[in-house]
Amino acid sequence: MKERYKGTFIIMVSFFLSLIVGGFLMMFYHVSPIDGYKEILEGALGNKYLVYSTLSRMIPILLTGLSIAISFNAGIWNIGAEGQLYLAAFGVAALGVTFHGIPSVLYLVLGVTTGLAIGGLWAWIPGYLRVKYNVNEVVMTIMLNSVAVYFTLYMTNGPFRTSQGALGATDVIDKSMWFNHINPLSNLNTGVYVAIVAVAVVVYLMLFSKRGYEWKVSRLNPRFALYGGVNVKGNMLLAMIISGMLAGLAGTLLVMGDYHRFLNGISPGYSWTGMILAMMVNYDPIGVIITSFVYAVMASGGLRLELELNVPQELVQIIFVLSVVFVTAGYAVANRVANRIQEEG
């Protein structure tokens, strides 16, 4: 338990430090940090509709963040969440524009299942190659990202090109496949309930199940895990598939809930953001939930920051990347100090 407090402390201090650096950066744009951060908070949480928007922004980041957390935590590096997201989103949209007249409840289930399946399958490929043939999963998933993105680009410019005006998108999907917007002024939609269920499952798996313990042990000490009778490879593959399913779900909800069609730029790098957040909290699912909320607030507010005070919204992402860097340094230094104390004692 003490280890955990130490981690939380390092993360809080690191985040605070990067907020300070972010404040200095704001001063380059002749904006006082206090005004800047106030603007961010108001832009994200100022009224009910803004809160809805912030929450809807949080969902894909949260899901991709958990996707990364569950795989990294198990010691298999799924950098391919972006590709899994794109392919699943496209697959769901392709389904939704092709078939009509299916009852809504059935169609919603079908859509989500398809998204999960595609995401899981696209992650299974590198996962299987990793555990069976020891093919480096990082490079493999990155290559698969490019393949997935170019494939969807081809599809939206070729067979699934929309006839409804917009470029680089599919047609709007069948209405009975829509997760309806909760409020017309924001993208928040009923898909959020699916996301909540998924998050609950992941939190249970990672923190409260035997499997979650095995994942962690497999990452921290694979030999010990093997000795203890843990199926390390099987666990890795399972984590990879669940990771892909979560990324796929993020894409699915974007199509079925937010946009009701597939767009070429459907993810402005959600999985990279998710990766930053997961790394920042050392793959702790609760941590991911908290940081993805904080990130969503700052990203929503960042839009306002750019519009009102002319500070580029990328500043927000930079603040979080700096946090990861500080956290990494913090852990390294803390471990060193601990080792030194052990050696001397």
């Binding site: 590096w77 790394m279 930079i318 990347v321 990861v324 860097v325 990494t328 852990y331 390294a332």
Partner: peptide, 15 residues
């Protein structure tokens, strides 16, 4: 610091 190469590498790429 002997930090994990994937973490710091990905952080730098995103940065």
């Amino acid at each position: 610091l002997r930090a994990n190469i994937w973490v710091i590498g990905m952080a730098l790429n995103i940065l």
